[in-house]
Write a protein that binds this DNA or RNA. Sequence first.
DNA 1: CTTGTAGCAGAATGTTTGTTCTGCTACAGA
DNA 2: TCTGTAGCAGAACAAACATTCTGCTACAAG
Lengths: 195, 195
Amino acid sequence: MPRATSFTADTLADRALLHFWVHGFHAASMDDLVRATGVSRHGIYATFGGKKALFLACFERYQQTVVTPAFARVEAPGADLAEVAAYFETQIAQGEAAGLPGPGCFVANAATEVAPSDAEVAAKVAQHNARLKAGFSGVLQRVAPSLAEDTRSSLAEVMVVFTTGLWTLSRCTSDAETLRRAVRRFLQLIKGVAG
Amino acid sequence: MPRATSFTADTLADRALLHFWVHGFHAASMDDLVRATGVSRHGIYATFGGKKALFLACFERYQQTVVTPAFARVEAPGADLAEVAAYFETQIAQGEAAGLPGPGCFVANAATEVAPSDAEVAAKVAQHNARLKAGFSGVLQRVAPSLAEDTRSSLAEVMVVFTTGLWTLSRCTSDAETLRRAVRRFLQLIKGVAG
DNA sequence: CTTGTAGCAGAATGTTTGTTCTGCTACAGA
DNA sequence: TCTGTAGCAGAACAAACATTCTGCTACAAG
């Protein structure tokens, strides 16, 4: 029997994700990725087949390990705006921990850099945004059941837009406290309409 | 006397801007830029010195030819939220005219792709965001002079975040009408607090 | 029309990219 | 202790990249 592999597809994707997240797709070379993951070129190609496929795997992994845990509380039955606040806080703190300017949101980065020239990534981004909108919409339904459906829908859209802007700015703004102030004020605006 | 140049630095930057705007920095090769601008490699290098310098010139040019005209009405004395609405509409329509998914905002794109690894670009992005905030803050001061200063400041921050998200989404969302709905709803939220 | 300057197109250069290949090594079974 | 399978590190590769160079060409002045 030959020796076992020293990594799994998931651990490889996790480490590559961190690198793509900070540096983006084009600026991350395979040499960088080999260094960052500790996995040989051969290992990466044998596992995923290429750079683009690795990127897509990282996208999936980001959903599973970052978005789902952070957004689950918003999607949970009974969630209200406090859960939305907690979601924002989690992601801002994550950027802060990585040393600001933070990496922002992997999906928002991919939307800007890769999606315009890649239909596969664009579809995944649209799917992610739809998920956010559904989550926010659920909270609004709970907090303000008397709201008309199209009002709720457009408010959820506003929250998606705000969320996206937050991650874009957290990539180049070195002041997490300003972002926190904006989040608090934004949630007050929503509360003003929704209850 | 030799023949005159068939382009000016400004027209060259204008054409390169369009290409960078849609494709981003890394995905735009010099070959692409030569094709897109109609200016020879020699001409580009003689005028700006390199790809990075060309990109910075495009940034400057974007401020002059896109941001300043579109944002001037917001910065004008006497501007109110209708001018903010017009600013958003101008940029959404611009994306639509370019064929959605639109190119978004050149600055927001640069913030995501280039700023994290380039201090010069990061500084320009920060400057741009400060300008937006100042413009929005001026409108709020006019519309709601009774608001406390820190309330106005954080509301302006919220508007900057929303604006940034709007351009990021307009790059991958094929539905300008949804963005328009979100803009209308967002301005209603602001009005609810400010006037 | 001649002339000479400087812009132009495209070839050439050296580096870096993504990808593939090769020889060696670790290690589970006999 | 042997054996052979399969992972590993690094060399090797072609393509693409930003940049530089070269010979030709257009054109304003005389």
